[in-house]
Design a binder for these strands. Structure first.
Lengths: 337, 337
DNA sequence: GTGAAAGCGCTAACAG
DNA sequence: CTGTTAGCGCTTTCAC
């Protein structure tokens, strides 16, 4: 009933080991033999049994994608990354599993260990902010589990994918400046996330380049969530001298800012310009649609996974690739009143 | 280095087979022996190797969640379902994999076969609208792959989870009626999806119960997407006699309706009441926040997976459980002007 | 209630 | 370039 490697071997008149070689793209098989074996596989619709391959070969052909479900409430951003990772894994016949890993509490190393011992992934794709937890990275290295990161905070030793977020932030703030805005506020993300650091830096850089000093009251702490955006905006609107524009460190917070503006009776963009970062689908569904930085999340997931797969397949060491961003100008930003 | 079942057996002074029995919760092990074995496992931090278990036992301990990535652009709804399924699988030490399966084209049976042959899932969780493709269900039965469904269109032979969507739709329309609305429009989802059928039926039922005849022009075709909601709303707004309220078959389309209202200069809820279905996070982030039916998606994913697991673990046949819904009244609905 | 023997389908290590 | 041999770590079958 089930076609086994041995059956293919018999059909192609070679030894099982040779079929195994062909299956695993190994060298030391003559072209004619290889073709004959491939033909037999095709003809018999042979499907190697993953468990047998794993047991004998001591590898799982499994990639695990880790995310922090603490700071990331099932966001669209992650869903897009996941999609890209899956596509990359599929293209090399690896399977993928998705795993939340709460970073809160210091037993996360134990949980990481359990994950590895229970599922034996050959490699791991890390998403922000997990990309930057030193103890976690250390443990992965100790246990010799290769990993690739999406938007890690530093380059050192990391493979995966990045985007020039600081430059992107600077670009969007320059857009506000070009509209005549001077009192531009920033709603920060969770302080130690790379994304927050870069986006804040880009904001400051653009302001400085325009010769403006940033009023400290205009930089408000947020936490990447919708409700933190609402809270931050309320704080800004209570200021004696209100900002005329707000750059929020992500779209969720920008949505919160717009919500709070509505609540306060402020018209966007007439009374207040608002912009975000990420270009989640919601951004173009708001009224007015949100001016934001488009980040090619799906592609980024794919590229990160491909770097990892290069390592897993013994094809190289993997790179840290940089992806382009784009400024999406929509209805939420307008010239200063 | 790695602790094997054999090592546990030695430590507990029993045979490997007995440890295996304990591991698999089989009968025919005395209580004392069982305890001794469990203690040894615990002490040695024994982790069975999935591939060895799969190879010998001919099962993968893998559940695959299938979704149609054609009609479902990485929606939040699916992310929540996925979360619930994952939790259920985790609780029984099963792994989970997520797989898109485009229903377009008639080679999807081939792709389904490949999926099964390549990954050998022990069971499958189906999400709408895949729950209702007869050829797919037939194939799963032929190949003897157990499955459970989230919101299947019919009860017959299905296990998993449902919600009384028709009753829910009726409830939300009754809410509009109680606000004095009479010209209530409905934006339908993709015609042959169960969700569309039920929600439309609930709408008609509520209207009929109120003694109202539905103007055919007030029922507009949509496709569950934001942009289809925009298009449907434009059509409704062009009517000689505009509706005073719109019930869209899901939140994405309701968002589109609100967007189109803004575009047209109509104030929600003063000029137009709008409501949706699902309660995706976005619903409470819009301004005004969207009145909708809350569907406990995460719980539903979990319950569906638990039914499947019951079958996989030989514990029973699984049920089709019904979950409760709730009407979330928010700012997008108000008394008729 | 417990154990001994015989594989599951594949690959590693070697030999040629 | 190709084949032989011996497992990988678990479960099955069957015996006791």
């Amino acid at each position: 009933m089930r076609v086994r490697l041995e059956d293919v071997a018999r059909a192609a008149s070679v030894s099982p080991k040779t079929v195994s070689r062909v299956l695993n793209d190994e060298a030391n098989v003559s072209d004619t033999t290889r073709k004959r074996v491939l033909a037999a596989m095709e003809a018999m619709d042979y499907r190697p049994l993953p468990s047998a391959r794993s047991l004998a070969g001591n590898r799982s052909f499994l990639v695990a994608m880790l995310y922090d479900n603490n700071d990331n409430p099932a966001s669209t951003y992650l869903a897009e990354i996941q999609d890209g990772v899956l596509e990359a894994c599929d293209s090399h016949r690896y399977s993928m599993m998705v795993r939340p890993l709460r970073m809160r509490g210091d037993d996360f190393i134990r949980r990481l260990d359990a994950l590895i011992s229970d599922h034996h992934p050959d490699g791991i794709v890390l998403t922000p902010p997990i990309t930057d937890y030193a103890p976690l990275l250390k443990r992965l290295r100790e246990r010799n589990v290769p990993y690739a990161s999406v938007s890690p905070r530093t380059r050192d030793g990391n493979i995966g994918v990045t985007m020039d977020e600081q430059q992107a932030a600077r670009t969007i703030v320059e857009h506000l400046l070009s509209l005549g805005h001077r009192r531009i506020a920033h709603v920060e993300g969770i302080a130690d996330h790379g994304a927050s650091v870069w986006r804040l830096a880009g904001y400051r850089e653009a302001m400085a380049a325009a010769g403006l000093t940033v009023d400290p009251a205009l930089v408000v702490q947020g936490a990447f969530t919708f409700s933190s955006g609402v809270a931050a905006a309320r704080q800004l609107f209570a200021l004696a001298e209100r900002p005329t524009a707000v750059f929020a460190a992500n779209d969720d917070m920008a949505t919160g800012v717009m919500w709070a503006a509505n609540e306060r009776g402020l018209k966007v963009p007439q009374d207040l310009s608002v912009c975000g970062f990420d270009d989640i689908p919601l951004a173009s569904q708001l009224w007015p649609a949100l001016t934001t930085i488009r980040q090619p999340s799906r592609e980024m997931g794919k590229v990160a996974a491909l770097q990892l797969l290069e390592v897993l397949r013994g094809r190289g060491h993997g790179q840290l690739q940089q992806m382009p961003f784009s400024l999406e100008i929509r209805g939420s930003t307008a010239p200063v009143p």
